[in-house]
Design a protein around this nucleic acid. Structure first.
Lengths: 186, 186
DNA sequence: CGGCGCATGTAACTTGTTACATGATTCC
DNA sequence: GGAATCATGTAACAAGTTACATGCGCCG
């Protein structure tokens, strides 16, 4: 079983979902720390179902279009719990922006400045989405849910994005100064 | 050409290196934002050499053991510059700790607490390494180098790790409170 | 002279992305 | 009726990891 499988089990543990809905949740709510493509989700759903970890929910009248909804089985819940108790192994980062920054003395500060501006805009947007998500979760009165854990995850995203934004601001100042110095000396 | 190729071109742009040395640099200096395995580096070196982007440095007397040292060629430098000017496309994260945190209401707070403690220790260590790296770079008087850029990258790592540490502290407090509440209600 | 660390390399495998094909439904 | 969106799926490819094989040189 791969990471994708456990991500699916986790989401289905909250409520039954279709592959398409899972993809949407990952793209929006998990965006700052996770990603999946359809090419992973659909094959994973099939294999999880064949292993008895999840099962298709029989279509009732309200079923929309060709949608296939899955729910977790007791075996799936056990597998999820087991995974949750195992130590975290994989932490994958690959921040191209930092690689480019590291080597950027090869090109004009101008180029890097453009990258940084795009980076800043993306993370400002992400922080905005997280702030709204936070308010949404806090607005739900319902207890006995996993709100505490979700809020902890959102908080991590906010902290990371604030760190990125502060770093962008300072780095943009640095690059602008460098650019002006280069202009003076020419 | 893949990301790995440009990472190698970037490093060889600073000084000639062997595959093994490249791996060591990535593991230590780039650890908080990048990773590569030998299985990527060696094939990449071979293909870059066959494309004329890099070339083997003729072995002189001081050459150590079976070491093969490569240096960048003018064609390689051009390719590197071109890549540096292209917009950043890929930003890959996969933070398993956050996925587990999100779904952790399925298991005892105790389990998550162990994960968080390991996480905190790892990032404390990483921050320590970055602080030392920063001092090392600042200690070199030599100008006309890429120190400014390197320090900007280190600064990003420090900010991210400080964010992780603050988040761990708060999250550990949260989990301990949850654990104590569970104990009282039993 | 045995073990460790340096050093290179590959094959098999796992994982993940991309591009495409298909078709239903909703909305204008 | 045409466009956009919802929805599922697959095949080909690209990327990345792991485990292994090999051998040199240094140190005790």
């Amino acid at each position: 079983m791969r990471q994708t499988d456990f991500m699916i089990l986790g989401l289905l543990g909250e409520s039954p979902l279709s592959g398409y809905q899972i993809k949407k949740i990952v793209d929006i709510r998990f965006r700052f720390f996770w990603s999946e493509s359809f090419g992973q989700i659909f094959p994973a759903l099939r294999s999880l179902a064949s292993e008895g970890m999840i099962e298709e929910v029989p279509a009732d009248g309200a079923q929309k279009r060709g949608r296939k909804t899955y729910r977790i089985t007791p075996a799936g819940t056990e597998a999820l719990k087991h995974w949750l108790m195992q130590p975290v192994e994989k932490e994958t980062y690959r921040l191209e922006i930092l690689l480019k920054m590291y080597f950027s003395n090869y090109v004009e500060p101008e180029a890097m400045l453009n990258h940084m501006q795009a980076f800043q805009a993306a993370h400002r947007q992400q922080l905005y989405i997280l702030d709204r998500f936070q308010k949404e979760v806090e607005g739900i009165i319902d207890r006995d849910e996993n709100h505490g854990e979700v809020l902890r995850v959102i908080d991590c995203g906010q902290k990371l994005n604030r760190a990125y934004l502060e770093w962008s601001r300072e780095t943009i100042v640095y690059l602008e100064r460098k650019k002006n110095n280069a202009a003076k000396n020419s």
